[in-house]
Amino acid sequence: MRKLLILMVSAVGLFLFYFTFQAAAAVFYTDWDLPDAGEQDENVPRVVLITNETDHPFWRDVAAGAEKKAGELNVDLDVSGIYGSNTEDFLRKIEIAIYSKVDGIIVQGLDNEKFKELTKLKAASYGIPVLTVAHDVPKEESLRKTYIGSDQFEAGELLARELLEDMGTTGEVILMMDSEPEYFQRQRLEGVEHVLAGYPDIEMIEAKIGDREQGLSTVNDLLNHFPQATSFLAVNASFTEELVKEIETRRKVDPYYIYTFDEERGAYALLESGKIDGVVEQSPEDMGQLSVELMSDWLQKDSQPLDIEGYFTEVSIVKDLNGQ
């Protein structure tokens, strides 16, 4: 009886001791998962990538490529963009980057006076090199070091040739663009026009959406104005989806030749469903990678000049994902 009691007491004691120590260990276990303090390496260049529409697949790919390269080259890359495409906020980001004295700015080119002033005056006065990515601005207006992205002129040409092939040499081609088309849109337009100029039977109509003078406040108006159109080229890709929807409400989409760029979110989905006929595919990841690489090179070997004309990434036309 007495033995049993002792056994029980010691069992309870052991039990209590075990849990007490367990609890004590849990309480006094000091492994705070805090970041390491002060990596004071001043030599790591701080580079900012600023884009519009950061949640856009295209720009996500750009950022991903840039980050990948930054990791490889030991560059402190800060991807800082805005959702949507508010110009004011966008410029603000650039300004903050400049005042924050980053070592380099990689930015989506914006054909805007303020942008040009920022890059030309502010960035230059702080000695910060600016590279444009994906969308260029005129080199003499922005004092950008170089441009990394698709050759938009070539992309336009590519698109025009594809159109000729599909549509033939006669037809009414609507070129959809902003009311004040940006530089990259103008380059694309030039490319298209350069090819189609040799075909007199093709009528090119520059549809500046949002332009009051032309009476084109929305895509909706486009169909009313140009009922004879046989094909649409979305120079500004963001009009594509709206256009397709608009056409679908009236008649079949099939007879129209619709081409767009991969900046359009739903471009591939539309292509897959056969509603559009071709997408110009750019290489956003390559752009990101190349831009960071060039920036890193520039920052480390200051003397080596960059090609002011730009470094072009691959452009191709995707016709049909199903291979038809």
């Binding site: 990596e39 903050i96 980057a97 005042y99 924050s100 004295k101």
Partner: peptide, 22 residues
């Protein structure tokens, strides 16, 4: 600047540099 760590490095540098610019 002494508060810098691996996590907040870029933000903090931007912050301090902004004050320097100011």
């Amino acid at each position: 600047t002494a508060f810098r760590n691996t996590d907040n490095e870029s933000e903090l540098t931007n912050y301090t540099n902004l004050t320097v610019s100011l």
